[in-house]
């Protein structure tokens, strides 16, 4: 099997429960390398849980997950996967630039470079790069978190509710950055309530109560009928 044939993400019989509360029913999913996918569903449908398990932040109750052929949590899987959470978690004592240098070097990168500068500029953070994000508003912290997710090498990008807390220009920049990342060959999986984004991706997967209820290409109208957004 060539590298291109290995799926970006393969989920088999994945379940997650919290005691007597089942968050994900047995779930099978394959996402091809280089594809763009939207995860849609009501609040509590299991989108974030699925993404967090794939990112390695939550442990599955059962089942197996492979990222580009590597088991989740392995060094290779971690090097391959970038996760943009909906709750930005940042250091209190590092500026945006220091964050970028730190995270980039942890991934074997060189630190602050032209790409980092271009992402920061697109997101409108260029004038704040030497400020502490701990003093930022929710939206600016979210933008910092996006920068950190993009300035490192990856081939699978997991994004949880990327548009929440962003202003109009931030949303546009985010859409453009996701398109750019995808056109560079990375696979992207985005959990969102944004109907307009669904029309930009090749595939949409709708979840309800932890089960897949739709898998295919969807329009904004489909999203409304599937999740009543």
């Amino acid at each position: 099997m060539s590298d291109e044939d290995i799926p970006a993400l393969e989920v088999s019989d994945l379940t997650k429960d919290y005691g007597d509360l089942i968050a994900l029913h047995p779930l099978d999913l394959t996402i091809d390398a280089g594809s763009s996918v939207a995860l849609i569903g009501h609040n509590g449908s299991g989108k974030s849980t699925l993404l967090r398990i794939v990112a390695g932040l939550l442990e599955p109750s059962d089942g197996e997950i492979e990222i580009a052929g590597w088991p989740i949590g392995s060094l290779e899987a971690r090097a391959t996967t970038s996760f943009l959470p909906d709750d930005p978690v940042l250091y209190d004592d590092l500026s945006v630039r220091e964050h970028v240098e730190y995270v980039s070097r942890l991934h074997g990168g060189s630190g602050w470079d032209d790409y980092a500068e271009s992402v920061v500029t697109k997101l409108g953070l260029i004038d704040r790069v030497d400020d502490l994000p701990s003093r930022f508003s929710r939206g600016l912290r979210q933008k910092t978190s996006i920068v950190l997710g993009l300035v490192r090498p990856f081939s699978l990008l997991l994004v949880d509710e990327p548009f929440v807390g962003l202003d109009a220009s931030g949303r546009t920049a985010m859409m453009e950055l996701l398109d750019e990342v995808h056109s560079d060959g990375a696979s992207i999986v985005v959990a969102t309530h944004e109907p307009s984004f669904v029309e930009r991706v090749e595939r949409s997967i709708a979840l309800r109560d932890g089960e897949v209820i739709f898998d295919g290409r969807a329009s904004a109208a489909d999203v409304l009928s599937l999740v009543g957004a």
Partner: peptide, 15 residues
């Protein structure tokens, strides 16, 4: 472990 360390260090391809 510091919350940011969990997200940025432990999820990075480091030992």
């Amino acid at each position: 472990v510091e919350a940011a360390d969990v997200r940025h260090v432990l999820m990075a391809p480091v030992d």
